[in-house]
Design a binder for these strands. Structure first.
Length: 547
RNA sequence: GCGCCUGUAGCGCAACGGAUAGCGCAAUGGCCUCCGGAGCCAUGUGUACAGGUUCGAUUCCUGUCAGGCGCACCA
């Protein structure tokens, strides 16, 4: 009952609208119930009256008042009325709902007694989601761009799982092709160099220091390597896995492109498209009619020399994702791939799947600044800041928070010098500090102070009620993250929650002379702890009990 | 040339088409006999430009200007 008050209000609103006879179904569906930033506009706010009024040319304020007039009966029937202090039409026609203090106190009671699971929201209904991210070519260490994708993808996967989706994380491993061949040649050339041979090292070889390291290890350990590509691939993949692990980014599956090809699935997928009449031959190549699905031009899938373009295995790969039973595919890509969205969506459409079942999230680049100047990045030249360096310099918690702090679609400037200098001023510490403070309080609290029966009505200070209200917003924030496919709002929320806590802490003592009050406040900070704990966990950030 | 993203306070960024455009940093001044001062409180300037859509625009549309990125039978 308590957690579904949102549903009750939504139902009551549409019932009230119905009883007024002016049903505008499409409008009513687009109306929303929002938690306004400003508490003076209530705890829930609906724009329903304005939406309908604009369509029917009525006065929104007047319509709002008429809705409120009949709303009372609808709410009364559901038994929710005792939790609603009043409903008011404000501003240009918002219908604002003000919940009672007891409602919030009941929320706190449930939160503490049920713990983190109480916060869970079921939006996914166990729908199977495959989220694919990072998928960097295993030809060099991960860059900061990959790091950001890792942070966003991992957090997003956590949030989706928490919101009731069945989530699997996947890394698509490009373990064959030109790039890998060149990698092998690069390693071999460096090895010869180390042995004193004079070899040429072409422009298109991988120039990075790590190739030399790799070759040096082969030489020093007297390894017999038959296939340098294979060796380089294995070694670098292992390094990538290790780095991601140190960054708390985990995958359920590493999907090999090589195995995909060997399984014959690429051919199968192309046959399928052929049967459906979506491919044709021209100039000796095989083309996919992606224009029939909204792409600007058709795309080659098999080159005139008989080899596949990148698109061919990708079509097969995505078909395989669906074949494995996933209903929703989420791909995180860098901005350099945005031109690729249409053709992949076209592929999915051609295979017969709804285009909404594939979501592409473009993770904008993180520009690395050193001494205020952007660092040129190129995998080939081996000039870039690696995930490893960021981890060493800034640490996993701060860097993860940092990568998530801006909207995923926004550019991110990351000045290494500043990040290092301001480590203690990084917002992540503000949040973690709140957590550590609470742990400290709980350590000092007498066990006896935590009673079975708590009088939550003792929590009546402004800062206390505001803090509980903030706690109560957590499930709403989870919903926003799912809707926007962006963990960013969670970072904002955790900072706001910490702020509410610090303010409360500064003005009121938790451990005080009044046993009953102490007890109630201990429950309050326990609730804050549960919520911070869950929020940080979803973002993949540690919760230190001492700092 | 075509396409995508971005122009908001000194800097970095917020604001499902909503209400008085917010937050952090930096700056100035206050707050520890008391649970962790990595904290709290106070102080203020702004939507690149020109039109349009509507009850209402930072948000949507058109154009101009400025910045970033992408436009392969590469991956």
């Amino acid at each position: 009952m308590k957690e579904s008050i949102e549903a009750i209000i939504t139902n009551a609103l549409s019932e009230a609208l119905n009883s007024l006879g002016s049903v505008q179904q499409d409008v009513a569906e687009n109306a929303f119930l929002d938690i306004p930033a400003n508490a003076s506009f209530g705890d829930y706010s609906s724009n329903l009256a304005m939406m309908v009024a604009s369509r029917t040319k009525q006065n929104p304020l007047e319509l709002g008042r008429r809705i409120v007039g009949v709303l009372d009966a609808c709410l009364d029937a559901s038994g929710a009325k005792k939790y609603i202090r009043f409903v008011k039409v404000q501003g240009p026609g918002f219908i604002n709902f003000f919940l009672s203090e007891d409602y919030f106190r009941d929320y706190l009671r449930s939160l503490v007694s049920l713990g983190g699971d109480f916060l869970r929201v079921n939006l996914g209904e166990n729908r199977r989601v495959l989220i694919e991210f990072v998928s960097a070519n295993p030809t060099g260490p991960l860059s900061v761009a990959h790091a950001r994708q890792g942070a966003v993808g991992d957090a997003l996967a956590n949030i989706l799982a928490f919101a009731g989706f069945f989530v699997k994380r996947e890394y698509y491993l490009n373990d064959e092709g030109n790039q890998i061949t060149i990698l092998g040649s690069s390693v071999e050339a460096r090895l010869k160099e180390l042995s004193g041979e004079k070899v040429e090292f072409p422009e298109n070889f991988y120039q990075g220091e790590y190739v030399i390291d790799l070759a040096r290890r082969i030489k020093e350990e007297h390894l017999v390597v038959r296939d340098f590509s294979e060796y380089g691939l294995k070694d670098i993949s292992r390094t990538i896995g290790q780095e991601l692990n140190d960054f708390s980014v985990h995958f359920d599956n590493w999907y090999s492109q090589k195995e995909l090809r060997e399984s014959g699935k690429i051919q199968e997928a192309l046959e399928l498209l052929k049967e459906k009449g979506f491919v044709y031959e021209q100039d000796g190549a095989l083309w996919f009619k992606s224009t029939e699905f909204g792409d600007d031009k058709d795309r080659v899938v098999v080159k005139s020399d008989g080899s596949y373009t990148y698109l061919a295995p990708d079509i097969a790969y995505h078909r395989d994702k669906y074949e494995r039973g996933f209903q929703w595919l989420i791909n995180l890509w860098g901005p350099d791939h945005h031109g690729y969205i249409n053709r992949l969506k076209a592929s999915v459409g051609a295979l017969g799947y709804p285009s909404e079942s594939l979501s592409i999230v473009i993770v904008q680049l993180a520009t690395i600044l050193r001494d205020g100047k952007p660092v040129e990045m190129s995998t080939r030249k081996g000039q870039y800041i690696t995930l490893r360096e960021v981890l060493n310099e800034v640490g996993p918690d701060a860097s993860r928070f940092f990568f998530l702090m801006r909207r995923t679609s926004s550019h991110l400037d990351f000045d290494l010098e500043v990040a290092k200098k301001q480590t203690s001023e990084n917002p992540v510490y503000y949040v973690q500090y709140a957590y550590a403070r609470i742990c400290s309080i709980l350590r000092q609290a007498q066990q006896s102070a935590i009673a079975d029966t708590v009088d939550f009505t003792l929590l009546r200070e402004n800062e206390e009620l505001q803090l509980i209200r903030k706690l109560w917003q957590f499930p709403y924030i989870v919903k926003v993250c799912v809707k926007t496919l962006d963990p960013y709002m969670m970072t904002v929320y955790l900072q706001e929650l910490s702020e509410s806590f610090h303010r409360f802490y500064d003005r009121h003592r938790v451990l005080n002379d009044d046993n009953k009050l102490t007890c109630a406040r201990l429950y309050l900070v326990q609730g804050v702890r549960n919520t911070l704990d869950k929020g940080l966990e979803l973002l993949g950030i540690s919760r230190p009990e001492k700092m």
